[in-house]
Amino acid sequence: MTRKHWLFLLAVLVQTAILAVVPASRIHTLMTGRTIFLKTAPVDPYDIMAGYYVTLRYEIGNLSKVPGYSNEGVEGPVYIFLTEGSDGAWQATRVDKKKPAADAASKGVFIQGTRTWNGALYGIERYYIPEGKGQEIEEALRKHRNETRVEVRVDSSGHAALVSLHIGSKVYEY
């Protein structure tokens, strides 16, 4: 192969590497993470669908009453410790600005978020759906507003990845 061929191959490899980097963290989380269920609801009950995705608001998105939470200081990562409730949904029990020790994941589940004025965002607030499924999911969300959960995997670093959407008794996984 000549130098020119190598150069082009390198350029295509750069593009492939960029494409690999985009989901790399999510794939790692999906492969190694622990499964938890989070209570959720669409952000705007009157305008549930935003194109081909649902924007979700989690119960653990509001941390104002959770011990350890403070909205003072600079924005940055926060770590939320979760415990499983009697209904199977996981709830926030404590918030920490410091990253937990390496062995913390073996003792319990914690999730990393970015602090907002009253809680945190986890990078899993958008669930993409295929064309033609919007109306069905929208109707199901309206009908089972309080019975919507999301299956999430959380790895040992606290990174989260969306797996599926559970609305009532139906599971949507895309």
């Binding site: 960029i18 494409l19 985009v22 989901p23 999510r26 794939i27 999906l30 081909y52 995705y53 990078g123 899993i124 607030e125 958008r126 669930y127 993409y128 990845a161 969306l162």
Partner: peptide, 11 residues
């Protein structure tokens, strides 16, 4: 790039 973000629900 956009489709990868969709497949893995990356925001």
């Amino acid at each position: 790039i956009g489709l990868m973000a969709q497949i893995f629900h990356i925001e």
